[in-house]
């Protein structure tokens, strides 16, 4: 069930710089992805009331939800944090999913918060590298089951970026994700730029990851751009996608039979350099990458097992 028919739609991750875009160019996208945390202030676990809606931002959400289907891309669950599992956050997500009819809900497969003293949480500042072990699978599976029960359907979890991998992992990352989706029925949000970042920094081939992943579990794909700092390539969401990301999209999308949407992500601080035209161009390039080639190449023996039928 895709957002606009039998093939995957193309959308953009909403940020406030796109308020004018929503008014003038909503016809160019099939859906908007929104970060729900942008629409409320979270006073932290244990606070009462904990979540305070931001009226101006909620007004924006209502305007875009009136125009296009909306999907939710959460950043605050921190489902892989061993020291906390935030069910109040899940309840808030459930409430907003019901209110705005999110077409699907995704989250990061990440540990970003650590339980601190006196009930306060410490934000780790970035997603901690995860150990791809059975121990983490055992932590995640019952949590995902509870989240999905609350949301009334599967959640999609996003693969992340690693700058310093945890050594001696029991599983590769795609093998870990395959085990997670097989045991819980959750989906995968496949971020192609994150794969590109890991390929550039760690020498892990993106195509190898894709070939090892059960692509039937992929419900959404993220595309984005990045930039370099001190010789490291960052997932900076700093404007247009590099050509490698579109090449990956062309390769992987036809193999994802349950793909519902491709989402272009960028940070609002880069909007002035792109403008509405720049965003429209990225959307068009994504559409082009999704279009079946007029003369499809013969499938390689390696790819036939995953090919869409």
């Amino acid at each position: 069930m895709n957002v606009h028919g039998p093939s995957a739609g193309v959308g953009v991750l909403f940020n406030p710089a796109l308020a004018g875009f929503v008014e003038h160019h909503s016809d160019a996208v099939d859906f908007y992805s929104v970060i729900p945390e942008r629409f409320w202030v979270d006073h932290g676990r244990g606070a009462a009331p904990r979540f305070a809606p931001l009226p101006h931002e909620v007004g924006l959400l209502e305007r875009l939800a009136a125009r296009k289907p909306v999907t939710a891309h959460g950043i605050g669950l921190s489902i892989a944090s061993a020291s906390l599992f935030d069910l109040d956050y899940v309840a808030q997500l459930k409430d907003w999913k019901r209110r705005y009819g999110f077409a699907w809900v995704s989250e990061h497969l990440a540990a970003m918060r650590l339980a601190g003293g006196a009930g306060s949480d410490h934000h780790a500042g970035l997603a901690l590298p995860l150990p791809w072990d059975e121990e983490l699978l055992a932590l995640l599976c019952p949590r995902i089951a509870r989240v999905q029960e609350a949301l009334g359907g599967p959640i999609a979890l996003e693969n992340g970026v690693e700058y310093t991998p945890v050594p001696h992992a029991e599983l590769s990352e795609p093998a870990f994700l395959n085990a997670l989706t097989a045991r819980t029925g959750c989906g995968i949000l496949l971020d192609l730029h994150n794969l590109h970042v890991n390929e550039r920094n760690l020498g892990r081939p993106a195509r190898g990851f894709i070939d090892a992943l059960d692509l039937d579990t992929v419900v959404e794909i993220h595309i984005a751009g990045g930039s370099s700092l001190h010789g490291i390539y960052l997932d900076a969401h700093s404007g247009p996608c590099p050509p490698e990301v579109f090449a990956l999209l062309r390769q992987v999308a036809p193999r994802c039979r349950n793909l519902r949407g491709v989402t272009f992500e960028f940070l609002e601080s880069y909007f002035p350099s792109m403008g509405e035209e720049g965003v429209l161009e990225q959307i068009e390039l994504a559409r082009e990458a999704l279009r079946p080639p007029e003369h499809p190449p013969c499938p390689s023996p390696n790819s036939s097992a995953h090919s869409a039928t």
Binding site: T164, L229, H230, L234
Partner: peptide, 9 residues
Amino acid sequence: RMAMNCTLY
């Protein structure tokens, strides 16, 4: 590469 994590933090 840990330096990059510290910088990003």
